[in-house]
Simulated assay, not measured.
Amino acid sequence: MSSIPAELKYSAEHEWVAQTDTEGVVRVGITDFAQDALGEVVYVEHAAVDAEVAAGDVVGEVESTKSVSDIYAPVAGTIVAVNTALDQEPQAINADPYGAGWLFEIRLSEISGIETLLSAEDYTNQVG
Score class of each variant (00 low, 15 high):
M1C: 04
M1W: 01
S2H: 12
S3W: 12
S3N: 11
I4F: 00
P5N: 05
P5E: 05
E7V: 03
K9R: 15
S11K: 03
E13S: 14
E13M: 14
H14I: 09
E15H: 07
W16G: 05
Q19E: 13
D21A: 11
V26T: 02
R27F: 13
I30F: 15
T31W: 02
A34V: 09
Q35I: 10
G39W: 08
E40L: 06
V41W: 11
V44K: 01
A47T: 05
A48R: 13
A48C: 02
A48L: 07
V49C: 11
V49M: 12
D50Y: 05
D50Q: 11
A51D: 13
E52G: 06
A54N: 09
A55S: 14
A55Q: 02
G56Q: 02
D57K: 00
V58R: 01
G60M: 03
E61C: 03
E61N: 15
V62G: 07
S64V: 01
S67K: 06
V68C: 05
V68W: 03
V68L: 05
S69M: 14
D70L: 05
D70R: 00
I71N: 03
I71Y: 04
A73W: 02
V75C: 12
V75D: 09
V75W: 06
A76S: 14
G77K: 01
I79D: 03
V80I: 08
T84N: 14
A85G: 08
A85M: 06
L86I: 02
D87F: 04
Q88V: 10
E89K: 13
P90L: 06
P90G: 07
I93N: 11
I93L: 11
N94K: 04
N94E: 09
A95R: 09
A100Q: 11
G101F: 15
G101Q: 12
L103R: 03
E105A: 06
R107I: 04
L108Y: 12
S109M: 04
S109P: 14
S112W: 08
G113C: 01
G113Y: 03
T116W: 09
L118A: 07
L118F: 01
A120T: 08
E121I: 01
D122L: 02
T124G: 10
Q126L: 15
V127H: 04
G128P: 01
